[in-house]
Each structure stands twice: as C-alpha cells, then as structure tokens.
Simulated assay, not measured.
Amino acid sequence: MQHATSSRDTKAEIHRAAVDLFSTQGYDKTSLREIAEQVGITKASLYYHYSSKQQLLRAVVGTFLDDLFEVLRLTETMEWSSENEREALGAYVDVVIAHRATGPTLLRDIAAVLAAFGDDLDELIARSRRFQLWLAGPDPTAADRLRAAAAVETIGAAMSAELDLSVSEAEIRAVLLDAATAVLARRGTPVGE
C-alpha cells in the first residue's frame, strides 16, 4: 500500500515539473531527462510512469480537457436561466483557475497539443460552440452570440495572463465571474447602444 501512495506522489511531481518546464521552455525544448532531474528521479523511473513525452503532454493537458468537457456537458441538460448561467460560468471559471498553470503550455505549444489530441480538440470546439450558444440565452441575436463568445474568452484570458500569486483563488474567481457576467448583461441590447 505504501508503494501506491509513493507512486501517485511521484506521478504528481512529474506532472508539476512537466507543466513548469513546458510552460517556461516549451514542449520541444524540454527533455524527459530535464523533467526527471527536476523531480529527482532517473529517466528510467520517469518512463515507468510515462512511456513518452507526448504521453506526458497528454496527461498534463488531458486533465484540463477532461474537466472542461465535464463543464461543457453540464449545459447540455440544463435549461437556461440567469441562475443556471451563473452556475455554469462559475464551474467554467473553477476549471480555468484549477488549470491556469497549463495555459502557457497550451498557448506556447499549440502544434504539439494539436498533434497529441487531434479528434479530442474537434469535439472540444464543437462542445464549446454549443456552450457559447447556450450562454447567449433564448432566441439569441448575432450580437448575443458574440457576447457569449466574448464572455468565455474573458474567462480564458486568465490562462494566458501572468496572475499575481498573492491574489487568492476566491478573488480571481470573483473577478472573472463578474467580468463574464458583465459582458453577458448587455444581452438583448442592440449594437451601438
């Protein structure tokens, strides 16, 4: 039983080291040897947990995508209301906050991410579009749909921005949720007013 706990801790350390190195150096410039050294294990030990760098990238980005898919599925069975909208946006914000360290990897090495995920990304894009359409509300105008897309991008901006680590996650959550709902609050307003 002790070995399983140790294994999970090592895997988590590998994951954290990979996020750190992929984000700062880039996927292509990071070697498995560097990741192993940062964790304090041998390259052979790293291979015990991940058979390739691409498999490690899938693990790093995959947890984010899994959590994101879960939020996007939430609205597929949820009727739109202002309360449900805030709940869905809150869940989306929570995923972004939980995985904000992964953001630089996604943005910096989009080609590697695309190669590692392929069809999964097509599904993510389709689900994201449905989520944005749901956020646009009942009988949305083209401007409402654009506002919904802008609200989602407002939340996603936290993954690309350098956040002050002295700010609590609760504060980050409140700011992102307020910003996204402010964008959506103009729903139904004609453009230019």
Rank of each mutant, 00 (worst) to 15 (best):
S82N: 12
S128H: 11
R86F: 05
I110C: 10
R147Y: 07
D139F: 06
G156V: 01
S166D: 11
E79R: 11
S128E: 07
L106S: 04
A101P: 04
V113Q: 15
L146K: 02
R147K: 03
A142L: 15
A126K: 13
P140C: 12
D119P: 04
L121E: 11
D144Y: 10
G103F: 11
S160A: 15
T181Q: 12
T141C: 09
A179H: 13
T181V: 14
E83A: 15
E162H: 11
A115H: 12
R100H: 13
M159L: 10
L121M: 13
V113W: 14
V71Q: 06
R73P: 01
V113L: 12
I172D: 11
R145I: 03
L135Y: 02
A116N: 12
T154Y: 14
T75G: 04
S128C: 06
P104M: 11
P138C: 10
A182L: 10
N84W: 02
V95W: 14
I172R: 06
M159S: 08
E171I: 01
T75K: 07
S82W: 15
E85I: 01
D139H: 02
W80C: 03
D122K: 15
R173C: 06
I172C: 06
V152C: 02
R73C: 14
H99E: 12
E153T: 05
T102E: 15
S128K: 06
I125W: 06
L133P: 00
E162F: 11
A174F: 07
D94V: 02
A126H: 06
S166Y: 05
L163F: 09
S168R: 03
A180H: 07
A126E: 09
A151N: 03
I155S: 01
L107R: 09
D144V: 03
Y92R: 05
D119G: 04
L107W: 05
T105L: 14
A148N: 02
M78W: 09
V95H: 09
P138I: 10
A150I: 01
A180I: 08
L68H: 06
L165V: 08
S128W: 10
G156A: 05
S82V: 14
A98C: 07
R86Q: 15
L121F: 06
D94W: 04
L163I: 10
R108C: 08
R73E: 15
Y92C: 07
E70H: 12
L177H: 06
T181A: 06
L68W: 13
L74Y: 14
S82Q: 13
E153V: 03
T75R: 04
G103Q: 09
A91P: 02
E123A: 15
R100N: 11
